[in-house]
Amino acid sequence: MSAVNVLVVEDEDAIREMLGLVLEQANFVVRAVADAHQAQAALSESQPDLILLDWMLPGLSGVEWARRLKKDRQYGDVPIIMITARGEEEDKIKGLEVGADDYVTKPFSPRELIARIKAVLRRSNKYGKSGRIEIGGIVLDVDEHRVSISDKHVVLSPTEYRLLEFFLTHPGKVYSRSQLLDQVWGRSSFIEERTVDVHIRRLRKVLAEHNREEFIQTVRGFGYRFSEQT
């Protein structure tokens, strides 16, 4: 298995050094920078497998840089874990809404951090699947990890991609939030059920740009269904 590259973006020197040490001890290849501008420069040199990004940064904030990054066709599928001192539910949801795949709240243990990183990396893998899935003009190429709708390339986050893949391979069936968490995020995930609603909303927004938002249907009192039939 090839080395996993992690880009750490943290403005506090002591925390940045600690994160680098913890990640290197876990056998990750680490590049650490102090702000979003340095991080953007690092991306242009080499694309990481995951970004560990502080919420509050000098100049361009981490949450705003994450928002821009997820809209970038070249880097939009790079997983992002936000580091935040904010514990309020609203702030956590905001981080997920801008495209972050997970978050850790300071203070956190090295063990928790590594567990979250590994969970996000597992969720972003292809799991050895191959082939092409197509429903209602939505085409998912598992081999190339690409999605297109009506022959137009669609940029999705790793979580949105996995969610769409699950829906496309299980059309017509109703799944509860807990079932979707198990199937898409994994049983060992730290994610709360409300996170499913956040990612469903983001995926619907992408599909709406191609007039396919009605494919994801809310089944009141239970969960969600993916179907061409309205």
Score class of each variant (00 low, 15 high):
147 V>L: 08
140 L>N: 11
128 G>W: 07
144 E>D: 13
133 I>L: 13
151 D>W: 10
139 V>T: 14
120 V>T: 07
130 S>K: 14
139 V>W: 04
148 S>F: 07
109 S>T: 09
140 L>T: 09
143 D>N: 15
150 S>F: 12
102 D>I: 01
132 R>N: 12
103 Y>A: 03
101 D>E: 13
142 V>S: 07
153 H>I: 15
99 G>N: 01
142 V>Q: 11
115 A>D: 08
146 R>Q: 15
136 G>H: 04
148 S>R: 14
104 V>I: 07
100 A>K: 00
115 A>I: 06
159 T>K: 02
146 R>K: 15
153 H>S: 15
109 S>P: 00
112 E>Q: 10
115 A>W: 04
116 R>L: 02
129 K>V: 09
151 D>N: 13
114 I>R: 01
121 L>R: 02
106 K>L: 04
136 G>K: 03
114 I>E: 03
113 L>V: 00
99 G>S: 02
157 S>K: 03
146 R>S: 14
141 D>W: 07
131 G>E: 08
140 L>F: 13
133 I>A: 08
149 I>T: 08
104 V>Y: 03
103 Y>L: 04
103 Y>F: 10
148 S>M: 13
106 K>S: 03
112 E>R: 08
156 L>F: 03
125 N>A: 15
123 R>L: 05
129 K>N: 11
139 V>E: 12
100 A>D: 01
101 D>R: 01
108 F>W: 01
116 R>D: 02
127 Y>E: 15
155 V>Y: 11
157 S>V: 05
106 K>D: 02
117 I>A: 05
119 A>W: 06
156 L>T: 07
117 I>W: 04
114 I>Y: 01
151 D>K: 14
123 R>F: 02
122 R>V: 06
121 L>S: 02
116 R>K: 06
100 A>E: 00
119 A>T: 13
145 H>V: 13
160 E>I: 03
133 I>T: 11
105 T>W: 00
140 L>C: 13
117 I>L: 09
146 R>L: 14
99 G>I: 01
101 D>W: 00
140 L>R: 11
101 D>S: 08
155 V>S: 14
133 I>G: 06
147 V>G: 05
161 Y>K: 06
124 S>E: 02
102 D>V: 01
105 T>S: 02
121 L>Y: 01
132 R>C: 11
107 P>K: 04
109 S>K: 05
140 L>S: 11
108 F>A: 00
156 L>D: 04
137 G>V: 08
148 S>Q: 14
106 K>Y: 01
126 K>H: 10
127 Y>A: 15
158 P>I: 05
137 G>Q: 08
122 R>F: 05
153 H>E: 15
127 Y>N: 15
130 S>I: 10
158 P>L: 05
159 T>V: 10
137 G>D: 09
142 V>A: 09
148 S>H: 09
125 N>F: 09
152 K>L: 11
147 V>A: 07
151 D>M: 10
151 D>E: 14
146 R>D: 14
147 V>E: 03
106 K>W: 01
137 G>T: 08
159 T>S: 05
